[in-house]
Design a protein around this nucleic acid. Structure first.
Lengths: 205, 205
DNA sequence: CCTACCGATCGGTAGG
DNA sequence: CCTACCGATCGGTAGG
């Protein structure tokens, strides 16, 4: 099936075909983090990728579609990173630590922080359909954490209510996006270490 | 000095003089929490207090002035509540616990949650002047927490980097505004208990 | 505090 | 992907 490009034959020869959509998405992610979804205009996004204000609508039907793509992609990236980090790790404490490191790296690292910020702070702007899809992905992610915490609880390495513990643990991690600075200060790794120390009971040698 | 009311003599006899300003502020706070500062319009605020769209500007010069009042008032309330809670408490663990309860109550309670949400999520919309004032109040508040954590560290009740610990502790608390529900689930008190258990080393009887 | 309004800006579209 | 534009909405104001 021929696409519009091959029909019109008048595109200004993009260096890499199909990358304009990704460019727009990354610019949108960064601007959403800096100014919020409502505070970002289509003209901001267009200017960030060197387009005129009407052109982003060639790639996305609405501004809301950009937000949906950013938050769904962002959530997927976090999930994938955390699942990958725990593969093949059998010790519960070690698994916990690796998952936490991966979660923080996904939230704070240069690659993912823009999308992650939208996941954490802009979901309220989603329409009901997109909100439902997002909610399902969040549930799946939190379920994985719930299972790992239950495992640690059964092993006597965590005490109290695991539901509350999960909310507080991930809350401490998520809030780091508010104070973390790439230059100077703690690294995602160090943050994960201190949070692990804070939460897990001292190891029994 | 005569105010405008006594000059025009045409106000519709407010039930309580000067309360319209407070009404507007509370409506603004609630709407800022629900839809964000950028997502809230003057018309939303006016409608919430039964005014026409031009009338809020009789009480506030700009929309931004409303945000400034909400966040500065909100920060002050949190500070006052936490300082009041620790008065006359000499035991460091007990002081910590009371401060944490007061912090969470201020963030989650019906009275303060709207203003607190603006403190936590809308400060990026402040102009440089208001941001500087806000920053000063936040510094003062965090200094109080830093002192208490240092005290616990010196007493051997906390380990590791107290700067990171404070950021993670208050982060866990602040993030509770994202998942706390007034009906059903944990109370602010229970959240404070679990967070204290998580963070402080087990008491030595 | 209301009426009536303004200039600016917004998301989005038609046509090429 | 650009040009040119539209209708809606926004924060804010003049005058009473």
């Amino acid at each position: 099936m021929a696409d519009l490009n091959s029909i019109t034959g008048e595109m200004p020869a993009p260096a890499d075909e199909g990358n304009r959509r990704a460019d727009i998405l990354h610019a949108a992610g960064r601007l959403f983090r800096e100014k919020g979804y409502k505070g970002t205009t289509i003209r901001d996004i267009a200017a960030a990728v060197g387009m005129r204000s009407g052109s982003p609508f060639y790639h996305f039907k609405t501004k809301h579609d950009m937000l949906r793509a950013v938050v769904l992609d962002g959530m997927q990236s976090i999930y994938d990173a955390v699942i990958a980090a725990e593969q093949g790790v059998s010790d519960p404490r070690e698994r916990f630590k690796r998952m936490l490191e991966a979660h923080l790296q996904a939230l704070l690292g240069t690659d993912g922080r823009d999308f992650a910020a939208a996941v954490l702070h802009e979901c309220h702007a989603l329409d009901p359909d997109a909100a439902a899809e997002m909610s399902a992905r969040k549930d799946r992610y939190e379920k994985r954490w719930a299972d790992v915490l239950d495992e640690l609880h059964a092993a006597g390495e965590l005490h109290g209510d695991m539901h509350l513990t999960r909310l507080l643990l991930l809350g401490a991690a998520n809030w780091s996006t508010q104070w973390y600075r790439p230059q100077g200060g703690a690294t995602p790794q160090q943050i994960a270490d201190q949070l692990t120390t804070l939460v897990l009971c001292p190891p029994v040698p």
